[in-house]
């Protein structure tokens, strides 16, 4: 994986989180934000300022679709859903992330400098 700069890393990881969150089923933006926070035990908080642009970006790319529906408490909300392309992208990004994490781990766990 090429070495992205910080902003891209932020965007890319956020996109991946969102895709994963929606892989369990359609949800509105608020739910996505809450789940990410919950699942990471409050380690990661998604700034709302970046979440909604992320959702719309993913929709522009055709990885998500949206529609206005009634929420749990019967209020109109915009629900997002993974498309087939989104699902494929999720798998691909997931695999990339795993490789990245493993490689990082290897470097960080190294006990001595390589020859």
């Amino acid at each position: 994986m090429p070495r992205p700069d910080d902003l891209d890393l932020l965007q890319g990881t956020l996109d991946l989180l969102v895709l994963k969150t929606l892989s369990w089923g359609p949800a509105h933006g608020y739910s996505v934000a809450r789940w990410i926070t919950q699942l990471t035990d409050d380690v990661l908080t998604v700034g709302e300022g970046s979440l909604y642009p992320a959702l719309h970006r993913l929709e522009e790319r055709g990885l998500l679709t949206s529609e206005w529906r009634r929420s749990e408490n019967n209020r109109k909300a915009k629900f997002y859903r993974l498309t087939a392309r989104g699902r494929a992208q999720l798998h691909a990004e997931n695999a990339s992330w795993e490789r990245f994490a493993r490689a990082m781990g290897q470097v960080l766990r190294a006990s001595e400098q390589p020859r």
Binding site: G29, Y30, A33, E48, Y52, S71, R75, K76, A77, K78
Partner: peptide, 11 residues
């Protein structure tokens, strides 16, 4: 605006 309003209301 509506989407953001929903979020704020939920929060």
């Amino acid at each position: 605006r509506a989407e953001i309003a929903f979020h704020l209301e939920e929060r």
